[in-house]
């Protein structure tokens, strides 16, 4: 699988990362290398093998429905670069 510059630019945009044309070129080469290496996996025949997303044995731990957390506004807002009273603030987003 090959990776063109357009795809790299699109991925950067989706990740909200600004890249110069030169950087697009650099990352295209680096990412192409990663993909090429991972491509080796395609040599394995996985016809009729369902994707593995767990061991199939482990069960997720479920919580009881009780309020056990929250009410920690100062902690929650502790990393906010710009807060206003009890709120986070961000540059205005209106659609």
């Amino acid at each position: 699988m090959s990776l063109d510059a357009k795809t790299v630019a699109k991925m950067a945009r989706l990740a909200r990362v600004g890249l110069s044309d030169e950087q697009v070129h650099t990352y295209q080469k680096e990412m192409q290398g990663i993909i090429g290496w991972v491509d080796q996996l395609n040599e394995v025949d996985v016809t009729d093998v369902p994707p593995m997303i767990g061991t199939g044995l482990a069960q997720p731990r479920l919580r009881d429905d009780q309020v056990t957390d929250g009410n920690c506004r100062e902690k929650v807002l502790s990393n906010a670069p710009d807060r206003e009273g009890p709120f986070y603030t961000v540059p205005k987003v209106v659609e």
Partner: peptide
């Protein structure tokens, strides 16, 4: 109250 029903998760 704003941001009180919030955990770190």
């Amino acid at each position: 109250e704003p941001n009180t029903h919030v955990s770190l998760v």
